[in-house]
């Protein structure tokens, strides 16, 4: 199957999916850093509740993609939509104007992110890391935020660390706190950027297990950037292979891993499974 055909098929499929409007959509999104184009026109729809694994060689643009969805980077051209609304623009009569901070904050309410390097707030206890935003951003009462946070921390196995500071935790524990901190905000989409790559090998599984459990019980959509192929196959409804700033292939995990079509994906998987 040649690439143009695939694109056509994509557009034909889109109306069928209308009953399930995408929770997030990339529309011909490009991103340049100075002269270098790191994303070369990405089209991607994420359905509500969908668990999407984003794989690809290092430098292919995976992080850039989800950072744009988190509003940490601005697309150079194209559009990103969340729940049908432009992320980086405001719709006014007569067209689009660049989004202001108020619009971005409204949009961000839908999105949560877990970072490779945790980025916990080091001056707050674990509990406060998780209650701070629910209280001051969502406006929950202290009691309610506390209850939610404790439930969530227990779920990730850290119910006994409420009063510890991040510096006292292992990498795996820190990452589990970071997951709790993001989930407690109840976003519609969660972004995970290689959340186990900064961990010692023996700590990887505890974090992957937490995400797997979460994926099973939540109706949040998730975009999981990962190099853990077994994990991706386990958890994802769909796998997207990014190569050199473009989506090279996408499909069900079974198809992607057992029957890859693009030579680049084949060689990526071969290299990957070997090393």
């Amino acid at each position: 199957m040649s690439i143009p055909e695939k694109k056509l098929e994509g557009t034909r499929l889109f109306p069928l999916k209308q009953k399930k409007n995408p929770i997030a959509a990339f529309e011909n999104v490009k991103k340049n850093y100075d002269d270098v184009q790191v994303l070369k026109g990405v089209d991607l729809n994420i359905s509500p509740g969908e668990k999407l694994a984003l794989i690809g060689p290092s430098g292919s643009g995976k992080t850039t993609m989800i950072r744009m969805l988190m509003t940490l980077e601005k697309p150079s051209s194209g559009h990103i939509k969340v729940e049908g609304k432009y992320l980086w623009h405001k719709e006014v009569s007569g067209g689009l104007i660049p989004a202001n901070e108020k619009h971005l904050r409204e949009m961000r309410q839908n999105i949560g992110m877990v970072f490779q390097h945790f980025n916990l707030f080091p001056h707050m206890t674990i509990l406060r890391n998780v209650t701070e935003a629910p209280i001051h951003v969502l406006g929950l009462s202290k009691e309610e935020a506390h209850q939610r946070a404790v439930d969530m921390l227990q779920k990730v196995g850290l119910g006994d660390k409420l009063d510890a500071y991040p510096a006292q935790l292992s990498g795996g524990q820190k990452q589990r706190v970071a997951i709790a901190r993001a989930v407690v905000m109840q976003p519609r989409i969660m972004l995970f950027d290689e959340v186990t790559s900064a961990l010692d090998p023996e700590l990887v599984d505890e974090v992957l297990q937490v995400i797997k459990d979460l994926a099973k019980e939540t109706d949040m959509a998730m975009i999981l950037v990962t190099h853990e192929m077994d994990f991706a196959r386990d958890v994802a409804d769909r796998v997207v292979f990014l190569h050199d700033g473009q989506i090279e292939e996408e499909g069900k995990p079974k198809d992607i891993f057992e029957n890859p079509k693009s030579p680049r994906l084949k060689s990526f998987l071969r290299r990957f499974l070997k090393s």
């Binding site: 988190m70 961000r108 309410q109 999105i111 992110m113 970072f115 707030f121 701070e132 951003v137 993001a182």
Partner: peptide, 16 residues
């Protein structure tokens, strides 16, 4: 930089 980014991801306002 990660602290600023985490603050944004948690949707804190600029002042917060």
């Amino acid at each position: 930089k990660g602290q600023w980014e985490a603050a944004k991801a948690m949707n804190f306002s600029k002042t917060q």
